[in-house]
């Protein structure tokens, strides 16, 4: 039987496949439902926050910053309450990261302000002396992509039943309605910023990437 397998590439391949697929079936499938259940109070991202999240991904913030606080005293002292599975229920994709070249950002919204981010993203060394983080000046000139963010929110609502438009949950509605909401949120953030170029652009109806990114970072709590 064994020798037969060694000469029959098809059945050999089937055998190999069974052996390698087995682990995935056992370790990943069982807890799929449970891990996806949100913690009470967890809300899906607003459209502006989602736009910011897409920028976070576009510029690979997750290559240097984690979003996962482990249950150690040294971590909870530094970053806040340790992470719970249900807090990530609306994170598609997850952004835990695998390397902390910079600090964890899981709850950065609790201890950094719009103004702080505004200065920091333009010139990190001006706020944190000795920082090795690059400046992200292009976020002050590129416009945030609200349409794609809306497309993503709409998609997760339709396909995965993410509870937009439910009581006590963020409103989505049509693109026009969502856009109005985005402008309102953006203006509140811009009011706290000191960057004149961003303010000027907003008067012309443009939302710069930095505004959306700050909206996202502020939502991390």
């Amino acid at each position: 039987m064994f020798h037969w397998l060694e000469r029959n590439p098809f059945f050999f391949a089937v055998g190999v496949f069974l052996v390698i697929a087995y682990a995935g079936v056992v370790t990943i499938l069982p807890d799929f439902m449970e891990s996806a259940r949100p913690v009470i109070g967890t809300k899906p991202y607003t459209v502006l926050e989602l736009a910011g999240r897409q920028i976070y991904i576009k510029d690979s913030c997750n290559a240097c910053h984690s979003q996962l606080i482990r249950p150690f005293k040294s971590e909870t002292d530094r970053y806040g309450m340790y992470s719970l599975s249900g807090e990530y229920a609306y994170d598609r994709p997850f952004l835990w990261g695998s390397k902390r070249t910079g600090p964890d950002l899981m709850r950065v919204g609790n201890y950094r302000t719009t103004d702080w981010h505004d200065h920091h993203m333009r010139n990190p060394q001006s706020v944190v002396s000795g920082s090795i983080m690059p400046a992200y000046k292009h976020m002050y000139t590129n416009n945030a992509d609200i349409q794609t963010a809306y497309a993503e929110a709409y998609t997760v609502k339709k396909v995965f039943n993410v509870p937009y438009d439910k009581p006590n949950m963020p409103r989505l509605g049509t693109f026009e309605e969502a856009n109005k909401e985005v402008m309102k949120e953006a203006s509140a953030i811009i009011a706290d910023m000191k960057s004149d170029d961003v303010k000027e652009a907003f008067k012309k109806g443009e939302i710069k990437e930095i505004v959306a990114l700050i909206a996202y970072l502020n939502s991390l709590k």
């Binding site: 996806a36 897409q54 229920a89 598609r92 997850f94 998609t155 995965f160």
Partner: peptide
């Protein structure tokens, strides 16, 4: 609407 090449992951959070 939005960028044609954008996609969103089938899995969320811990599962992802």
């Amino acid at each position: 609407m939005g960028k044609w090449y954008h996609s969103v992951s089938m899995y969320a959070g811990t599962n992802d």
